[in-house]
Structures are given as structure tokens and as C-alpha cells.
Design a protein around this nucleic acid. Sequence first.
DNA 1: TTAACAGTTGAGCAACTGTTCACCTGACAA
DNA 2: TTGTCAGGTGAACAGTTGCTCAACTGTTAA
Lengths: 120, 120
Amino acid sequence: MKQTSHDSCDRFLVNADSVRAAKRHLDQTRERLFELTETFRILGDPTRLKIILVLKEQELCVCDLASILDVTRSAVSHQLRQLKNLRLVKFRRDGKVTHYSLKDSHIAILVETAMEHIHE
Amino acid sequence: MKQTSHDSCDRFLVNADSVRAAKRHLDQTRERLFELTETFRILGDPTRLKIILVLKEQELCVCDLASILDVTRSAVSHQLRQLKNLRLVKFRRDGKVTHYSLKDSHIAILVETAMEHIHE
DNA sequence: TTAACAGTTGAGCAACTGTTCACCTGACAA
DNA sequence: TTGTCAGGTGAACAGTTGCTCAACTGTTAA
């Protein structure tokens, strides 16, 4: 059976109020929804999550991050750019070396909350 | 310049202790790290996150979810399977209709924590 | 100047992912 | 039985993504 994009069903009219309420509820959080998804998406990659986890403990340079995660400096740099774009990390130049650290504690708190709630 | 997989640099020996400590720290959370990443990855998709957000408020059937999210029932069903696999949602058959709801409050708390910490 | 090094960047590619489509199952009503 | 509806499923496709490679910038030391 062909399923249309709207995909309304016979039950639609029965639950019309609930559905409308849910649509309204989603619409109200629409602005925040994008950055919320982005934040989770960024943390949903093993390399990036590991970067956050180790930066949560100490400031580190790209070279050390590459050594710890066992990937190339290039790979780390690419991922750090994404973390910079989302303003999750900050950096400090010191001669040839660039030291990275978490921009604020919000992301660390989020990861810790997730860890607490995962092994239920 | 060729970057090896291990990508050790001259600074390696200087920070050897920090690097080793970070590696140990990562290794200790290794078991939990997979499910942690999976949880964030699942929430990092707009369709799945919206499903969680509306199920947080009320129990809903596939048909209504499709109507609310404006996608096909098939798309909703595919995503619900992933949420079932991660044990984030539960369902209740009632004749032809399957009602979905959140399995427990952990995921809702996690999403709420994220919302609080995002618009800092 | 020159060489070495830390880090960045864009292109390319292989792997993954979310959606749609078509078809199927199971429940219910006629 | 037959038709209809809610929902599930696999194949296929288009779009995305994370990595590697090669080349580049900027800094430091010889």
C-alpha cells in the first residue's frame, strides 16, 4: 500500500487533539531542537566522544590526542574542528603546540549524566 | 608528511605520564563507552529525537507518530526498531494498533539535562 | 636560511545511514 | 471469505560521514 508523506490514518480523527498537542509541543522546541540534535550527533561518534572524555580530565595537544586515541593527527584535527564549531572546546596556542580543553562544564555534565543513567 | 597510525610525536616523551593516564582512563570506561556512544548516536538524529520528545509526553501509535513527524509509517517503524533494540521504548499491542511509550525515565532525564545545558 | 615539527585543510573514497517503495503479516469488520 | 487497515521488513537509492593522503601554514631551532 502506498504511504503518503503525511500518512494520515483513520485513527487520526480519534486522537486529533493528542496529535495536535504533540505537534504544538514539537513546534515550541523547534529552535532548540536543531542544536539539541547536533549536540547528541557530535557525541555519537566514538572518536569525538573519546576526545571529550579525555579533555574532561586534562588539557591536551593534538599530538597527544592522536597518540591516546591511536589515530592520525589529521583525523583528530578534523574532529576538533567540529567540536570547535559547536563551541564545545577551546584552544590555546603555545609556540608550535596547540592545547585543547573543554570550553565549559556543560558538556562534561551532560556526558556524566548519560554515564549515570546508562548502566541503570 | 606521512602520519602513521600511532602518530607519536617528539612531545610524546615529555607528556608520557599524562598520555598514559589518559589511555588508562579511556580503557577503564571501555565497556561503557560503546553503549554511551550508541545512546548519543541514537539521539543524534532529528526523527528519533522527535520521537523521544513526543513519547516523553504521551503514549502514541505508529500512525500518530508518522502524522506528527510528517514522515511515512515505514520510516517511523524503522526508527522505532532501533529505539527498541537499545531498549529505550516499549510497546503495547491493542488490536490492530501498537502503542509506543518510553521504557523508563532515564532517557527523558538525559534529554532534559541536555536541554537545560544547551542554551547556557 | 634551512630543516624539522605541530597542526590545518581539501579532495577523494569507502562505509554507513535514513528514507522510500513494494510487499508482507496479522487483526478486525462486513 | 473478503476487504481494509496498522504495522513491519528487505532492497535500493541518495546523501552523509569519518578517515587517509598529500600538500600547506606557521613556529622554532640549528
